[in-house]
């Protein structure tokens, strides 16, 4: 029987579908009887989903536009590094 520590260490691989059949069965058996690990794995799924959600912009839109202009200007004025 896997311990809670072992199950949590495999949580990312589990939710990414990267564990083999035998290990998956062992983990599922553990999750069926361990509320703490079931909660942890469920929270890791939520975490994965949230980290895949678009993050807020780092820079204001006007700054982004100004930087795009600056890059294109640099290319026109200094076409090569040399």
């Amino acid at each position: 029987m896997m311990t809670c520590k072992e199950v949590t260490e495999r949580a990312s691989a589990l939710i990414d579908g990267e564990v083999g059949l035998w290990e998956r069965l062992q983990i599922q058996l553990h999750l069926a009887i361990c509320k703490g690990c079931a909660r942890f794995v469920s929270q890791m799924r939520v975490t994965r989903m949230l980290t895949e959600t678009a993050l807020p912009p780092l820079l204001p839109d006007s700054t982004e536009s100004a930087r795009i202009d600056a890059i294109l200007t640099e290319l026109r004025t200094r076409p090569t590094d040399g």
């Binding site: 311990t3 809670c4 520590k5 072992e6 949590t8 361990c34 509320k35 703490g36 690990c37 909660r39 942890f40 929270q43 939520v46």
Partner: peptide, 15 residues
């Protein structure tokens, strides 16, 4: 988070 046997010392809270 685990005791000496690898079991939760304090299980995660419900979200």
């Amino acid at each position: 988070a685990f005791d000496g046997h690898g079991h939760w010392a304090t299980p995660p809270d419900l979200w």
